[in-house]
Design a protein around this nucleic acid. Structure first.
Length: 637
DNA sequence: ACCTAAAGCGCC
DNA sequence: AAACGGCGCTTCAGGT
């Protein structure tokens, strides 16, 4: 197959997945769901009330359970919801109710407080079955059910993820309430969601519980139609396939050596104290400061306050108009105090956010850290992670060495090598990049040689570093000025603005495919197009009240496809990984971290590599996909 | 006393 | 004015 920049761009711009083809028909079951929805909608209209009546059957004994679930055994699609008591932490909360919905049937509400877990096997079998489980934010249900010994099996349809796939980039509420209102014109009353589900339940509570399970069925029908119409069906399927891996990862958590962490904290605090002394000359500029008799109370400034720091620096005659790092870096050599200030601020973050902050999230029950993972947390489709964010733990070894596997285990750390650069090579079809990757050449070295006008063998490690900055900056539209600053800040190489813009020019001359790719995106940006797609079909929208930035549109296809690839790897990994003793514990965009029993290292390594490479190959061919796997005793190596 | 925006810094 | 992109957390500063 002949690859040219134009042909790839053309293909890129009209990428269609077969599975996304519109005009699909609906099954009988789906038609029934729509009829049910129509009845529901009519009811709302007539009553003009936020409270909906919906038939349900409360099951509070083992004998009724088996009978009640009979109609569900043959069902292909089941709406699922849970209500919990004692909070929403899967390690502390308890499931009170499991609600199950199928079309034209009362919702079955199972009271787990009234049924012994040994009598739940009909429910367990049902959840293990092949029916499509539909719910809103199923990660929560999955974790709760898994903790109750009722782990549900694929396939899943998560209306929350589906709604996010459909609206990625837009600011809108993704709650079930908002989705039902927006897509079905049904008003749900969520006031009871946080009510007490531990004691005697009221009719209103049961009614609320029933509606939540029932509503996801028409919601799914609506979302499926819209996803197919928007050519987002394969993206949604990818998210659904990835969901159980994410839920399991959140349950697994990550172990932190608290004692070692405490030692680290003390070291950082000592370093900070030393810097504070070094920075004591930074004082409040005051015209009458000589009247202050107790300078330690009056003249010292708050080093975390940009406003006070700016005034103090200016008082020392240092020519600054801003205290941000970019502005201060060029002054580091001339004024030693600047470096101390930068170090101080860095230490402040490492102490408050990490040394003090992270340890507060060690779970009292598991003694591990279980962050909230959001599999579509970013507009590009990337994951985000909160409370705490494990995706921005400082890289320095002393910090990461505190993250360790359980005893008898090691960590397996797998990284995609230069994934975004490879994606750029793929989507732009740049001939030089394709040739370099197929020969196994080092792209950073290549860029340095092209821009500096030297042969590959002449490039030293410092020049390669410059090539790296050029590669990662310029492919996303960095301007000459920012590039100049970055070359100095991260590489220590002082460039004039002319040199910087000369390098930039040579970069795009050397990689004509990238230049062409940028032109193509710029054209659609100029036309006022408000969406961006990845090669996998994932879409990001811009709302009408926010003008898309060109650089956002340049970046999205790259960053978004990287997310697609990682998610596909996780989806492939999930089932086979569960047949081993290894556990997924962390995902940092292009890095996957497993905790693996020592005895199983070799097979798990092979499985991990295979899943990731297969996922990469699906989108990157003919660009080779490289995955590096390390077996380590701690995250720090 | 509490809320919000911005600055700053950590990561990919 | 469009000028690397994507996040989350803590602190400060100014407001109600």
């Amino acid at each position: 197959m002949k690859l040219t920049a134009k042909s790839i761009i053309r293909r890129y711009s009209c990428t269609r997945s077969r599975k996304d083809s519109p005009g699909s028909f609906y099954s009988w079951a789906e038609t029934q769901v729509m009829m049910q929805y129509n009845q529901l909608a009519r009811f709302v209209e007539i009553n003009n009330s936020s409270f909906l009546n919906y038939p349900y059957q409360l099951i509070d004994n083992p004998a009724d359970l088996e009978t009640a679930l009979e109609p569900f055994i043959a069902a292909k699609i089941i709406g699922i919801d849970c209500e919990t008591s004692e909070g929403i932490d899967p390690y502390q909360a308890k499931i009170r109710l499991v609600q199950l919905a199928i079309p034209h049937h009362p919702v079955i509400i199972i009271d787990l407080a009234a049924i012994d877990s040994s009598d739940l096997s009909p429910l367990r079998q049902l959840l293990k079955g092949n029916a499509l489980k539909v719910g809103h934010n199923l990660k929560f249900e999955w974790m709760m059910l898994a903790q109750a010994g009722l782990k549900p099996s694929r396939p899943f349809f998560d209306t929350y993820l589906a709604y996010r796939v459909l609206t990625a980039g837009l600011k809108c509420s993704l709650s079930l309430e908002a989705a039902a209102a927006q897509l079905l014109n049904v008003k749900l009353d969520k006031k009871l969601q946080t009510s007490d589900w531990s004691g005697e339940l009221t009719t209103a509570q049961l009614q609320y519980a029933a509606i939540d399970a029932a509503i996801v069925l028409p919601l799914r029908t609506n979302l499926k139609r819209q996803l197919k119409k928007a050519l987002l069906w394969s993206t949604a399927l990818l998210e659904f396939a990835c969901l159980p891996a994410v839920a399991q990862m959140e349950l697994n958590g990550m172990w932190l050596d608290k004692q070692q962490w405490q030692l680290l904290k003390e070291q950082l605090e000592a370093q900070q104290k030393a810097l504070e002394r070094e920075l004591s000359s930074l004082q409040i500029p005051s015209p009458n400061k000589q009247i202050c008799l107790l300078p330690e109370f009056t003249n010292s400034i708050n080093l975390r306050s940009p406003k006070q720091v700016l005034a103090a620096l200016q008082a020392q005659g240092i020519p600054v108009s801003s205290t941000n790092t970019q502005a201060l870096i060029p002054l580091v050599n001339e004024y030693p105090i600047i470096q101390a200030l930068l170090d101080y601020r860095s230490l402040s973050t490492r102490i408050s956010t990490f040394a003090e902050g992270l340890v507060q999230h060690v779970h009292p029950v598991t003694e591990r850290i279980h962050p909230n993972w959001f599999q579509i947390g970013a507009k590009s489709g990337r994951f985000s992670c909160r409370e705490p964010n494990l995706q921005n733990v400082p890289r320095n070894p002393a910090t990461r060495q505190c993250f360790k596997p359980a005893s008898g285990h090691v960590l397996l750390k797998a990284d995609y090598s230069q994934i975004e650069l490879r994606i750029m090579a793929k989507v732009s079809g740049d001939m030089r990049m394709i040739a370099a990757y197929s020969k196994g050449e080092d792209l950073h070295k290549l860029t340095a040689s092209l821009v500096l006008g030297k042969s590959l063998s002449e490039i030293n490690s410092s020049e390669r570093q410059l090539g790296k900055i050029i590669n990662f900056g310029l492919i996303y539209g960095m301007g000459a000025k920012k590039f100049k600053n970055m070359a100095q800040a991260e590489h220590g190489r002082v460039l004039s603005l002319e040199e910087a813009s000369q390098f930039r020019k040579r970069f795009f001359e050397s990689y004509a495919g990238i230049a062409e790719f940028h032109k193509h995106i710029r054209r659609s940006w100029l036309q006022g197009i408000r969406e961006s797609r990845t090669l996998g079909g994932r879409r990001r929208l811009w709302s009408k009240d926010s003008q898309p930035l060109l650089n956002e549109m340049l970046n999205n296809p790259i960053q978004g496809l990287s997310a697609d690839i990682t998610k596909l790897a996780l989806a492939k990994l999930f089932a086979p990984l569960n047949r081993t003793g290894a556990r997924l514990i962390c995902v940092i965009h292009d890095e996957i971290l497993l905790e693996c029993p020592i005895a199983e290292v070799e097979p798990v390594k092979a499985l991990l590599k295979c899943s990731m490479v297969e996922a990469g190959d699906k989108f990157l061919t003919p660009i080779p996909c490289e995955v590096e796997i390390q077996m380590i005793e701690s995250w720090g190596g």
